[in-house]
Design a protein around this nucleic acid. Sequence first.
DNA 1: ATGGTCGGGCTCCGA
Length: 264
Amino acid sequence: MRIATWNVNSVRARRQHLLDVLASPDAPDIVLLQELKTEDAGFPSMEVQAAGYHALVSGQKSYNGVAILSRAKPVERLRGLPDGDGDSQARYLEAEIGELIVACVYCPNGNPIGTEKFAYKLAWMERLATRAEAILTTDRPAVIGGDWNICPTEADVWDERAMAADALCQPESRAAWRRMLWQGWTDAWRTLNPLPVPTPSLGYTYWDYQAGAWPRDNGLRIDALLLSPPAAERLTAAGVNRIPRGWDSPSDHTPAWCELAEAA
DNA sequence: ATGGTCGGGCTCCGA
C-alpha cells in the first residue's frame, strides 16, 4: 500500500497535475492533500472519483484546506483538532481506511517569528500532539502525514544560516517535531535514509518560487509521513517524487510517499 | 544584488 502527501498550493490551479499524479503507474493508494485554497464546492470531486478515488474534503475559502483521497472508502473520524476555541482554519482531517487510521495535517507556517502567528503555530502543534497521543493509544496502524512546516534538522535544509530566522527552523518548532518522535512516531523517509545521508537534497519536498530555488536545488524537507509502531513495522520503502515540481506552473511542494506491506 | 514568485481575491494577504 502506497501513501503519499502533497501540498498542492491550490487544488484548482493544480487540478491537472493532481489528475496526472493519480493516473501515473505508481499512483498512491492514499493521497493526503494540503492547501486546497477553496471551499468544498471547488474541489474536483468528479474527476478524482473518475480516477478511482474516494475523497474526504475539508475546504476553506482562499486559505488552508485539506483532503484525504483513497481507493478504498475512507470513514471520517475527525474534522479539525479538538480544543480549537473557535479555530476556523481547515488544517486537520482524520479518517479510517480499513484498520488504518490516517490523519492529514497542514501545520501552521508561523512566520514571522515573534508574532501571534508563531504562537499559533506552537499552540496548534500542542493540540496535534494531544491528538497524536490519543491515536497511539489505539495500538492501530496509523499515519499522520502532511505539510509540517517544520524543517526537522539542519540536514533537512539547503542552508541553515539562510533560514536561521525562519519559523520552520526555530528550536521551538523542531522541539514540537521531536515530541512526535518521542511519543513513538516513526519518520518514514528519515528511517530509511538515516543520517548522515550522501545526498540530503533527495529528501527535499519544498522549493521556494523565488530566487531560483528549484533550479539551484535550494530546498527543504518539510512534508513527511509519521507512522505509529504497528504501521512502522510494515514500512518497506519511502521516497520523494520530484517530477511534479518540474512541471509547468507547479506547486512549490512535491509529493512524499511511503510503502507499507499488507497486514500479515 | 537585502531582491525575487506564486495563488486567491481584490488594490493586499499568506506562503
